[in-house]
Design a protein around this nucleic acid. Structure first.
Lengths: 330, 330
DNA sequence: TTGTACGCGTTATCAT
DNA sequence: ATGATAACGCGTACAA
């Protein structure tokens, strides 16, 4: 009952069936003008009849390029990345490139295995959503998205995180809040630093240390950080991402505080669930799909030109929803 | 200033440096015992010095296998898949396989491009999280996860969706609910049908049509479906996934109903946000990571044995949280 | 317009 | 234990 897969056709098979040489088949399939209409038709018929598809591995070996790019994700479960990937795919497809995704899971071994796909020509370029270049590969044919890469030779497509954070906090101040707290991510993280800097900017330079906590961008860590902040009695908190903002809301509620009447909460990213949470989250929206599109465009241009891709800064938006309100609670 | 990437080393370069033939280098790198310790050391030194890595494309062409598998996702933004992918990666890595991810985005063109990666040997096997086999490829070296595949030759790793749905609804009945509604997914979808069947099972065979609505597994569609159900005054609703459950809660609240006092809501999947929502969602947990692990195991076994993989049914769990309560509202 | 033949970087066979 | 060489399947000079 078990059908054995028939050995896959090669170009020579198609050539034989069409009564031509492999060279002609290759040319016909590549759309070369050096093929008569009549032979082209015969070849196309043979391809249709047999269901032949060109072997991308052999072709890639010969051409030294695969027309594939690989997107490296640190955490495939992070809802931030989905839309970025869609943007990348959109632009790549437009330019005839395929997109593969690799999940490093912050595991050096997996990252190395994926980097090898790049080093050995299985993919032509890399989009880094991981915030760092895999060790041991040259900083060329790479582009970063969202998070800055330590290697200055690598262009990054992002928003102005510092300005966005400043804007979010300024908004809270405009609502009359005077004790604005901040929950950041891991302190070593560049995004954390940029958004923290924007927080300080808005406050005029420095903040009460009792009003600043750092988590790890998870809901649980936001919850813990908010519990630690509550004794200082902030009336508003700016969180470095939406997950921690949700955690902050949970902690506030657990302590009997109403959001937004007694505590305003601002997130960052506008992940898919942000608008569906109760209350819907006020947050900074990153143009994720555009970021992906631009990143792909920058990378693919660099593949052709061989010259250094330029970084791009895209506009963010403050999305005001129901997790924030006036300082006096109405 | 622009460093040109040095042309990549080939095995012949390493051979030259180590003063041996490429055949010996190949053997040494493959761990063959037919290499003297002394030459092996020289070769390893050369590899370290140069940073040489074997070209997987050339190797794959020669060996006719890549030791890579490709996971096909219908929607990379769907939070259900993250943990499944982790399970797949875990097992694949254990067996020395790499994992790539392809997002079809329900776009036939992208799906075809990804299927070609498989057809042409860039990857050895396919894990389908899409619910269907890409057209035009033989049903071998494939395994499905979660959703049944139309082609009976393809093994699927899943839970017993019908039994799980029955269990969820039975739990609601045990709480004293008599008007239990259901929000399903697209009616053509197999998961929708199985979970709907389980809903009917628990009710003893049939349900009031006014208590059944179908959405598209999105939050918005759950919201719309719940609005349509409200006139029938259900005291509980079983939703075919967590997103629609969240939508149902939003709709109930918008109509002034308290969850769970006036309406109990059960979801399905236990996506990462389910426990963090307010109220935390009662739902059916699928053992996502295990499903991924088992799927990888089944697929990789099939790659060796050439025989048909066997389907697997894994245990689900009803997770009771705060979105459900007794029918009398306390 | 078409065909012949070589090379892309490996691995395996067959010598030695 | 090691080396020469033929494949793997394709693309492209070069020849015809």
């Amino acid at each position: 009952m078990d059908q054995f897969a028939q050995p896959r056709l090669k170009m020579a098979d198609v050539a034989r069936i069409a009564g031509v040489s492999v060279a002609t088949v290759s040319r016909a399939l590549a759309g070369s003008p050096l093929v008569s209409e009549e032979t082209r038709a015969r070849i196309e018929a043979a391809v249709r009849d047999t269901g032949y598809v060109v072997n991308q591995v052999a072709s890639g070996l010969r051409l030294q390029r695969s027309r594939q790019i690989l997107v490296l994700l640190p955490d495939i479960a992070n809802p931030f990345f989905g839309e970025v990937v869609l943007g990348i795919e959109e632009e790549a497809q437009r330019q005839g490139f395929g997109v593969l995704i690799g999940n490093t899971a912050r595991n050096p071994e997996r990252e190395a295995a994926l980097a090898r796909q790049f080093q050995t020509g299985a993919v032509d370029g890399l989009v880094l959503l991981t915030g760092h270049k895999p060790p041991g590969i040259p900083p060329t044919r790479l582009v970063g998205v969202s998070e800055h890469i330590a290697d200055p030779a690598i262009a990054v497509v992002s928003i102005d995180n510092r300005a966005a954070a400043r804007e979010a906090v300024t908004y809270l101040l405009a609502l009359g809040h005077r004790k604005v707290a901040h929950i950041g991510g891991p302190t070593g993280n560049i995004l954390t630093q940029q958004r923290h800097a924007g927080f300080l900017d808005a406050l005029g330079g420095d903040a009460d240390p009792a009003l600043v906590q750092f988590g790890d961008y998870s809901i649980a860590s936001g919850e813990a950080a908010m519990h630690a902040l509550l004794p200082a009695q902030p009336t508003a908190v700016f969180c470095s991402n939406d997950e921690m903002a949700i955690g902050a809301i949970r902690a506030a509620r657990a302590s009997g505080l109403h959001v937004p009447h007694e505590l305003s909460v601002v997130g960052f990213d506008d992940i898919p669930f942000a608008g569906a949470y109760d209350p819907p989250l006020t947050t900074i929206r990153q143009p994720r799909r555009d970021m992906g599109r631009v990143a792909a465009r920058v990378l693919l241009a660099a593949l052709d030109d061989q010259d250094m891709p330029r970084p791009a800064v895209l506009p963010h938006t403050l999305i005001v929803r129901a997790s924030t309100g006036p300082a006096d609670g109405k």
